[in-house]
Amino acid sequence: MINLNQYRHVLTLAEERHFARAAERVHLSQPAFSRSIQAIEAQLGLRLFERQPGDVRPTPAGAFLVERARRLLFEARCLERDLALYLDHQLGDVAFGMGPMPNVTLGPKVVAEVRQAYPQIRMRLEISNWALLLERLQLEEIEFFVAEVRDLPQDAALQVEPLMRQAGRFYVRADHPLGPGEHRLAEVWPYGVGTTRLPAALKAVLGRLGSEDALAQPALECDDPRLLHQIGLSTDTVIATTELAVADLVQQGLLRALHLPELPVVHAEMGIVCLRHRTPSPMALKVIELFQRFALGAQDSGA
């Protein structure tokens, strides 16, 4: 019977494609690691890897076993974690991610609520765009993330739950040269546009309006909406952001939305993303519930 350590050896060799590197990762000598792989192949009566000088590749049988081993080891890690939480009667710590817009709209309220209600738990937050957060999720470094989800790859391993829509507009400082009244998009581009990474769907909308060249290379692109807002307040840069993200600045009369009749209503589609077959920790479930509660409250208030 093949044990979990042997499955781990097969998976590591498939990832490293090199016996010495794989042996180092699992803290074995190369001869001992090679004997482990040979023993597995002998037990199964299958050749799992093609050995070439400097390169090791799974055979079709090996690729089949690697995929099953990956899932088996994943479930084993989840079981170990859940049992530890059960035995300790603890909520456990939590690690999760937030995209740029959730970080400045829902994130502060969620994190403050957690710290107030559960001061004994530890949180680790990853703030980045969805692509980097997806990497962290797949590496199991975070349990879930909240971000724009329209550009996520179609992957059966992912579970995506819609959270909320955040309406997006273009904003300028109160005394911007583009005064009140209607404007055309062609008037906007010369001032430069600052934005977070735009979803492909929004780029397509702007492309149909003849604006794809300007948005393909925005004047300022970053994953920190607060920085974008500060640049909008201190320069003539036009900021593309969500209504919820700048609600306070608009209410204070510091930023104002541009009236662009040719631009259709656009939204950021926020969702909660986790691995489909991983059971969230008790604390992760509570944090997710907070995101859902605050998202619902923001929608009900019309913010």
Rank of each mutant, 00 (worst) to 15 (best):
D248L: 06
D88C: 07
P225A: 07
P218C: 10
E141W: 05
L137V: 11
R124A: 14
R70D: 05
K286N: 01
A186T: 15
H229T: 09
C222R: 12
R293Y: 09
S29R: 11
L152W: 03
R150L: 14
G99I: 01
Q116H: 15
V149L: 11
L258F: 04
I288Q: 07
E140W: 00
E16S: 07
V246Y: 00
G97L: 01
R226E: 03
D223A: 15
R173G: 02
Q120Y: 12
R70L: 08
A268K: 02
A303C: 14
C78K: 11
W189G: 02
R47E: 06
Q251M: 12
L65A: 03
L255M: 10
P31K: 11
F49T: 04
R51M: 08
P264C: 10
V287Y: 00
L72M: 15
L11H: 08
R278W: 13
E16W: 02
Q159D: 09
H229D: 07
D236R: 06
A201W: 06
A257T: 15
R81A: 01
A284M: 08
R122W: 09
V188D: 01
S34P: 04
G194C: 05
A32F: 07
T105F: 07
D300M: 15
G181C: 12
L85G: 00
A240E: 01
R57T: 06
R21D: 11
H176N: 12
V104Y: 03
M283E: 03
G92P: 01
Q43T: 11
A186E: 13
I231N: 02
I142Y: 02
V111F: 12
T241D: 14
T242A: 09
R71W: 10
M123T: 04
A298M: 15
V246I: 06
V188I: 10
L206F: 13
T241H: 11
M164F: 08
L72S: 13
V193Q: 04
A32W: 08
K203I: 03
G271H: 08
I121F: 06
H89V: 09
E161A: 10
E143C: 09
P261C: 10
R197H: 11
E143I: 04
E262A: 13
I272L: 09
L296D: 07
L178W: 03
D175I: 05
L198C: 06
R35T: 13
L254M: 14
Q166N: 13
S128V: 05
R51P: 00
F96R: 00
V111A: 09
Q52Y: 09
F294T: 00
T242G: 11
A76I: 04
V146D: 08
R35A: 12
A167H: 14
F33A: 00
I231R: 07
P119W: 13
A298D: 11
E80F: 03
Q52L: 14
P108E: 08
Q116K: 14
S128N: 13
R276Y: 05
I239Q: 01
S281G: 09
Q52C: 07
